[in-house]
Design a protein around this nucleic acid. Sequence first.
DNA 1: TCAAAAGTGTTAAGTTTACACCCATGA
DNA 2: TCATGGGTGTAAACTTAACACTTTTGA
Lengths: 216, 216
Amino acid sequence: MEKNFYINHPKFYVAVDCIIFGFKEQKLHLLLLKRNFEPAMGQWSLMGGFVQVGESVDDAAKRVLKELTGLERVYMEQVGAFGDIERDPGERVVSVAYYALLNIDDYDKNLVHRHNAYWTDINNLPPLIFDHDEMVAKARNIMKQKAVNEDIGFNLLPEQFTLTQLQTLYEGIFGETLDKRNFRKRVAGMPFIEQTDEIDKSSSRRGARLYRVVKK
Amino acid sequence: MEKNFYINHPKFYVAVDCIIFGFKEQKLHLLLLKRNFEPAMGQWSLMGGFVQVGESVDDAAKRVLKELTGLERVYMEQVGAFGDIERDPGERVVSVAYYALLNIDDYDKNLVHRHNAYWTDINNLPPLIFDHDEMVAKARNIMKQKAVNEDIGFNLLPEQFTLTQLQTLYEGIFGETLDKRNFRKRVAGMPFIEQTDEIDKSSSRRGARLYRVVKK
DNA sequence: TCAAAAGTGTTAAGTTTACACCCATGA
DNA sequence: TCATGGGTGTAAACTTAACACTTTTGA
């Protein structure tokens, strides 16, 4: 009975697409597919997938992320719905984009390899299919916005990190250079960041103090 | 040929729901339906509708807003997609929420009456069906956020307005009282707001200067 | 004449920015 | 010993916040 209220309305494919951020070699990267399947085989795209009957849209995004990276419990946020008629030239698909921030030490390299996915410098992206460029642009904006007020950046770092790494990350997010002393002053005022007693010697002779986020 | 890539995936109803803000009697209001149709007849909800084959999701939102208010070219922004499996207990529907800011002088009262819709004080809302409360909460947050940096508030005001009206509006948006002198100082620094030579006498004996937004 | 809303500046506190040199180490 | 990245403080500019009284007018 109830099931018939909507019967005169059309149905659509609903997809999810993931903008997957990682911080690698001192730069922000996105994990992109060089598509080895149709449609648009051979072109670059975000990792995506279709929402299934038994899952919420959010869960579909988590599933798709896991299919590519093996990771669960990753920081994800919705970017928004993309619903232009011709956004996918093959067939009408409404897509909901999500961005994910992942610690690049953790992902499953085999899975990524099997999907023909590559980490790509965010300031040097190839053209992407459909409206994926627009999705990326919107995700970057939302992420940047969010990073001003909330401490989401740490999701991109390993458990321990140097202040220089942290600064470089934020410079990547905001797209501008920051003053070292002012940056460190601010970090010093964040109660949830604490020094460890370890030193990272990998990036300088002197070595840099490692810090970590205090779990609440 | 191309059309068959996605054939194994399910399709869903896709709806839009509109959080319609108006500024009335010195308070922020939402335009809500007291539903005179199924499902959930008799309960309160946002104005919504289903996306049709020939229209984008954005266009569906514009159409739905126009169906209720008669208005076109209203300021609208997407709030996000809501895709929980059971969000509509009757049937699986993915909904994309939008908020609209409208000048309450302009809408079509007959249409609104026919839809059994009412302006409701945003701080005194009835419980809404499904996840509409969540949509409203998210829309308010996004709107508040946006109002900090961008001058969207003016969409809620008539062409000419007093500074007291403007301040009351922003107090409604931010949910806090503002200092009159500081507020006026800030407005004075906005180049796109200009004095008119008219005085509004409706709210005080002395009368208050009317201002307007300069179109760019 | 008085009630009610409109209008008007100054100061202190806090925040943000700009800026340059010494340190520790391994090669 | 020197090249490299790590680490450190202060002062000026700017922004934000706090605060109270006078004006105008119609009833």
